[in-house]
């Protein structure tokens, strides 16, 4: 189970790992915007190249990156199939009852699939190259302006870091509970959908029980040490931008510019 924990930090010594988390988060947002600005195949190609280059530079084996896609492959396939079958504009290639496959539909669905893939891959590249602590620090720092509208930025950051901190523990817990139930003859991969869903109960119930127990224990431990989320806590490691971040900004901005130019046909020049 620990093997499939998707989006977990993957340690390596690379340009991307060393970037400030805020840079990565912002670049991620820019990338997502760019993906939604895509119209022509050239712009999809540009997105693809940007992603592949980032992955190569991050020195994370392709296998580990692709593993994160596996977790959402089902959703992507469903989306694509529905889009193909229910898109009714354009030249009809095949039709039966209310279902039609049109040329336009195929194109639309393939673009949709690419968008989803790019979204999943880019966000998991961020979590793969950033420790959970850095990620929350970065988010907190980016969200700081929201303090003006009384948004509890600090509390949200603490909640997020606790949640992230517990993901590996939960994976471990699921692993243990699954083993215990398998030892008692449970099987999770046979039978129809309903049978399989029912087979999850012996895992989910102990998991919830233990989650509440843990939450209780943690709350007590925090109270016992008089914890309160003072807004002005200092950080052990202060986030700082370096020359590396500037390089990343420039590259990301250039990428966004290319996408915009492709969308507008180089501002009507083409």
């Amino acid at each position: 189970m620990r093997d499939v924990a998707f989006g977990q930090f993957y340690p390596a010594d690379s340009f991307v790992h060393k970037l400030d988390p805020r840079t990565k988060l912002l670049a991620g947002i820019v990338y997502i915007v760019a993906v939604f600005l895509c119209t022509s195949y050239y712009s999809y190609l540009a997105c693809f190249l940007f992603l592949v280059i980032s992955i190569i530079v991050s020195r994370i084996p392709i296998r580990s990156v692709l593993k994160t896609v596996k977790a959402v492959l089902f959703i992507i396939i469903i989306t694509v199939v529905i889009n193909i079958l229910f898109y009714s504009d354009g030249k009809v290639l095949w039709s039966w009852w209310k279902l039609t496959i049109t040329e336009q539909g195929l194109i639309f669905a393939s673009k949709m699939a690419m968008r989803l893939l790019f979204l999943v891959l880019s966000t998991s590249l961020i979590t793969l190259t950033t420790t959970p602590m850095n990620l929350t620090d970065g988010l907190e720092s980016l969200l700081t302006p929201l303090k003006w509208i009384k948004f509890p930025v600090h509390d949200v950051a603490i909640i997020m870091s606790i949640a992230l901190r517990f993901i590996p523990s939960f994976m471990e817990e699921i692993d243990k509970i699954m083993m215990a139930q398998k030892a008692r003859g449970a099987s999770f991969d046979t039978g129809g959908l309903i049978k399989r869903a029912k087979a999850l109960l012996p895992i989910l119930i102990p998991l919830f029980v233990s989650a509440f127990r843990r939450a209780d224990e943690l709350a007590m431990a925090l109270d016992a040490r008089c914890y309160n989320a003072t807004p002005n806590r200092t950080k052990m490691k202060k986030l700082t931008f370096t020359g590396r971040d500037v390089v990343a900004w420039v590259l990301t901005a250039a990428f966004l510019a290319i996408i915009i130019m492709l969308r507008t046909g180089f501002f009507g020049l083409l």
Partner: peptide, 21 residues
């Protein structure tokens, strides 16, 4: 595996955490 697991019972650390019914 069914026959195997029937023949070889296993109790983990904190077995009470596996109760669910």
């Amino acid at each position: 595996l069914k026959a195997l697991r029937k023949g070889i019972g296993m109790l983990f650390q904190y077995p009470e955490y596996q109760l669910f019914a």
